[in-house]
Design a binder for these strands. Structure first.
Length: 898
RNA sequence: GCCCGGGUGGCGGAAUCGGUAGACGCAGCGGAUUCAAAAUCCGCCGCCGCAAGGUGUGGGGGUUCGAGUCCCCCCCCGGGCACCA
């Protein structure tokens, strides 16, 4: 055995051994229980960043742990290879996206291999390869024929200078990222997946996923946004036409003071025909990006159309306004505005001097007021501000000050007022009564509405999976027949940033119509890259299948037992993948309803961002590795001049703040990199990157190596003894020294804890800490007698096994020295070693910690109370008076309440 | 703006079911070893205080014998918002 720990040597040797034995091959015909462990595949952006290392180490720890416990483990890897960054690189460097992508894949694969992940590389796939996307196209044509995919108009960001569609990310402050031109909204035809047809099932399915984090399920449920409300109509004077709106607050119908419609609403267009000012306003609304965040934060603007509608119950005449805060894509593209009880309506009404009518009495539900009332009841004096507020609320609520308003606007708790016959009704009763009255007049009904919209997948981009449709003047949109698939994307193209280069490729565009044979045009839009990532997990089961999308092997491996990926995918990717699984199920391709049984959402690895701004306003992002921070000033290492500090953000290509883990691996080895990332923070929490602490992880591994080396200098000791351990040369009645029994108890407690931390809690930092504590305790154990050496051997064997999922190279090398020829398996807890005779309880007096008492482990409440009362602390703090009450928490503490 | 998380020493974090706040590690300080340094080993290390003791988990209030943990209000930071992946 080498005296010194040389990670590079160890890792090279062990990795070669794994390669030779095919250690990570997942067998389709293995009868043992399977464990399909999947980490989200990376976008091949160039090199691994710390987020990848973290993600894949978590997956690897779980995969290796389960392998040690006897599971047939599959851990595959692939490449989410289509996407925008490849086109950006092409624009910047003139390299074809295909060549750039393949080069990146080769480099990143080598990095993953250097990290020693237990990946079955025989299942590797890349989504940009025709043998992968062919089946995506095949499924597309099937779904198109079924009507699950359809075509309609949709709004995109249009850069009028570059003459191209922009991604939301490419719109910065309402301008195109390259041209700087003001972005416009433009309507173009797109293909849509009818995900809304599955909305109910996607929502209900969340309840069948106990292995998913609650927060992810909540986010998805809110995203789907099922709401029951009322769809109701306002009549137009002098015509049969109806203006429909959807509302979840029909109980506030009597408080409607205006109706607001989206700029794209047909009614607005009609009014604008005779009103140039209105037409100009509608045009103005078309400026800016389509991103919802932008829509929601922009200044609310509106204009009176001059049109009037009639309130369906009161018959009142109500003005119709056009406003940019109403979205055409949600509900009916029109809302009934109740300024007293909706925040946006309220703001709008105040801005334009529209009337506000309170129709819900909800003062008790006010948070601020509730607190004030509670304080008053406790006779706490209110602050001047609170008192003033409470008073103004009580007396002048109807004056609609901004603050007072906030205290009733959104509540469903109050009862109707100022609402005629509905006065006094609560939320549900009022909605029911109003819906019934509307139904009787044919002006409304209860309706379930979803926030979720159909999934538009057309992208006006080159580097993506071609949409397999041919446009024929005679036959219309014709799906490409299965025999003619795949529609292959030419790989020799270099985009220049002005539109989709496929349009300029006659050899791609021109083709005969598959139906009538006449000359036709191929669709040049490609698919959203979320489509590829929605089914890759299934393809890993049969990546070599040449004549179908999936075969029977899919159900052998699916659903995925453990899925691991960034929290940033909590909604979109995970919802689309769940949706796709149901589409594949309904095509008979898989049997299960959900793709991922257990989900671990790792927190983001974040890092500081730095940039320099050019005169044009364009920002150049600078990698933190190239920046030096001195006395709070950030300087570029290259030129020593300052750069702007942009805040801490998710590591990303676009902000260029990824930290390259390669330096870490080169210097300390993969095991140190893995140990440190697992030790730095629990997986679900975000991790602010810093290099400090890596040394500590490396030191620990060196110490472990040295401890094993020194122990083995005296030869291997025999296997662990059965409990209870006997002392050396002692007779049967005499037990081993206390120190040895204590260490063995700690050892078996640690085995228990580490297994629980990995398997149930999925918290590896505490598992590592427990092993470190055990090693610290071992270091204090002295002596070279047979019993001591045997326990030392037992501890070291266990420590190496417990760490093996995290630091597999060093673990395997040390295990081979400790137990030649043996295979690493998970250590077994010796229950007898855990037994304790005496325990220490904390002693509190009036809830304050005042000391401790030692009692027998089996002591009952009476004995514990007696011991507590007899203690020094009790004498001192009770001053002779008997306690009023004694609280005993078994195994923990005793509290004397005086 | 809306939805979802988070906030604990100088730093990363621990405290799993309401029961010893700060495990483990980093940094720092002191010591041993060394010609010296690195490496290594030992010890100290929330804050105030000489001490006794007090105080302390973003801020304010509450429930409880007992609150980092539960409830109410507020502040700050991160993620997502449908064309970044």
């Amino acid at each position: 055995m080498q005296e010194k720990y040389l990670p590079q040597d160890v890792e090279r040797t062990i990795q070669q051994k794994w390669a030779v034995t095919g250690a990570f091959r997942a067998r389709d015909d293995d009868a043992r229980p399977r464990y399909y462990c999947l980490s989200m595949f990376p976008y091949p952006s160039g090199k691994l960043h710390m987020g990848h290392v973290r993600n894949y180490t978590i997956g690897d720890v779980l995969a290796r742990y389960h392998a040690m416990r006897g599971f047939n483990v599959m851990q595959p890897m692939g490449w989410d290879a289509f996407g925008l960054p490849a086109e950006n690189a092409a624009i910047a460097n003139g390299v074809p996206p295909a060549a750039w992508t393949y080069a990146n894949i080769d480099h990143m694969r080598a990095q993953l291999q250097a990290l020693g992940f237990a990946i079955d590389w025989s299942r590797e796939l890349a989504t940009c390869k025709p043998d992968y996307y062919r089946w995506e196209q095949w499924l597309f044509t099937r779904l198109f024929e079924k009507g699950v995919i359809y075509k309609k108009m949709a709004t995109v960001n249009w850069d009028p200078v570059d003459q191209t569609v922009l991604a939301n990310e490419q719109v910065i402050d309402g301008r195109g990222w390259r041209s700087g031109a003001l972005v416009e909204k433009r309507d173009i035809p797109m293909y849509f997946f009818r995900i809304t047809r599955y909305a109910d099932e996607l929502l209900a399915g969340l309840d069948t996923l106990p292995g998913w984090p609650e927060r992810v399920k909540t986010m998805q449920a809110n995203w789907i946004g099922r709401s029951t409300g009322v769809r109701l109509a306002f009549k137009t004077p002098g015509s049969d036409e109806l203006l429909w709106v959807f509302t979840t607050r029909a109980d506030t119908l009597m408080g409607v003071t205006f109706v607001a419609v989206a700029a794209e609403h047909p009614l607005a267009a009609r009014a604008a025909a005779e009103n140039p000012a209105l037409a100009a306003f509608i045009d103005e609304c078309k400026q800016g990006s389509v991103a919802e965040a932008d829509m929601a934060t922009m200044e609310k603007k509106g204009m009176d159309t001059g049109l009037k509608v009639i309130h369906p119950i009161s018959g009142e005449v109500i003005p119709v306004w056009v406003s940019n805060y109403v979205l055409m894509s949600y509900g009916e593209g029109a809302v009934m505005a109740v300024p007293a009880h909706d925040e946006r309506d309220f703001g709008f009404a105040r801005q334009y001097g529209l009337p506000i009518r309170q129709v819900i009495d909800a003062r008790e539900s006010s948070g601020v007021l509730r607190q004030a009332i509670a304080d008053t009841r406790r006779n706490r004096a209110l602050s001047a501000e609170e008192a003033e507020f409470a008073e103004s609320f009580a007396e002048h609520a109807s004056e609609f000050t901004d603050r007072a308003w906030q205290d009733w606007y959104a509540s469903k708790e109050g009862v109707c007022i100022n609402s005629g016959k509905y006065d006094g009704l609560g939320y549900e009763a009022a909605v029911d009564a109003i819906a019934a009255d509307l139904a009787a007049r044919g002006l409304g009904e209860k309706k379930t509405q979803f926030r979720l919209r159909d999934w538009g997948i057309s992208r006006q981009r080159y580097w993506g999976c071609p949409i397999p449709i041919v446009h024929c003047a005679t036959c219309g949109d014709v799906p490409v027949p299965a025999a003619q698939l795949p529609v292959v994307l030419p790989e020799d193209v270099v985009p220049d940033g002005s539109g989709n280069p496929l349009n300029k490729r006659a050899d791609f565009v021109n083709c005969p119509c598959p139906r009538c044979g006449k000359p036709a045009r191929r669709e040049t839009d490609t698919m959203d890259t979320f489509v590829e990532s929605s089914w890759y997990y299934a393809r890993y089961a049969c990546p070599d299948l040449a004549d179908g999308m999936l075969d029977a092997r899919a159900d052998k491996w699916l659903p995925v037992d453990q899925y691991i990926g960034g929290i940033e995918h909590a909604i979109l990717h995970l919802l689309y993948a769940r949706f796709f699984h149901k589409l594949m199920r309904d095509e008979g391709l898989v049997a299960s309803d959900e793709p991922f049984t257990n989900l671990l959402t790792q927190g983001m690895v974040v890092a500081d961002t730095y940039y320099r701004e050019e005169a044009s306003g364009k920002k150049t992002w600078i990698n933190p590795a190239d920046v030096e921070v001195k006395d709070g000033v950030a300087l570029l290492k290259a030129d020593g001049r300052p750069v702007v500090v942009g805040g801490t953000e998710k590591m990303s290509k676009s902000k260029n703040n990824g930290v390259d883990p390669q330096a870490l691996i080169d210097r300390y080895g993969a095991d140190t990199a893995r140990l440190f990332t697992m030790f730095a923070a629990p997986p679900e929490q975000s991790l602010e990157w810093s290099d400090a602490g890596v040394e500590g992880a490396h030191r620990f591994l060196k110490r472990l190596w040295k401890t094993v080396y020194e122990h083995l200098q005296g030869g291997r000791a025999p296997s662990p003894q059965p409990s209870p351990l006997k002392g050396e040369g002692a007779n049967d009645a005499q037990s081993a020294p206390q120190a040895i029994n204590d260490l063995r108890r700690q050892l078996h407690q640690t085995i228990q804890k580490v297994g629980d931390d990995i398997e149930r809690r999925k918290q590896f930092n505490t598992a590592i800490a427990a092993v470190m504590e055990l090693m610290n305790a071992l270091a204090k154990l002295e002596g070279g007698d047979a019993t001591t050496r045997s326990v030392r051997q037992e501890v070291l064997e266990a420590v190496v096994a417990l760490l093996a999922p995290i630091v597999p190279h060093i673990a395997e090398a040390l295990y081979a020295e400790l137990k030649p020829g043996a295979t690493l398996t998970w250590p077994v807890v010796d229950a007898a070693a855990l037994v304790q005779d005496e325990i220490e309880l904390m002693l509190q007096v009036n809830g304050k910690l005042r000391g401790a008492v030692r009692v027998a482990a089996a002591a009952d409440k009476v004995a514990i109370e007696a011991a507590a009362l007899a203690s020094e602390a009790a004498q001192k703090y009770l001053e002779g008076r008997p306690p009023k009450k004694i609280v005993v928490v078994p195994g923990r503490l005793v509290n004397l309440v005086a």
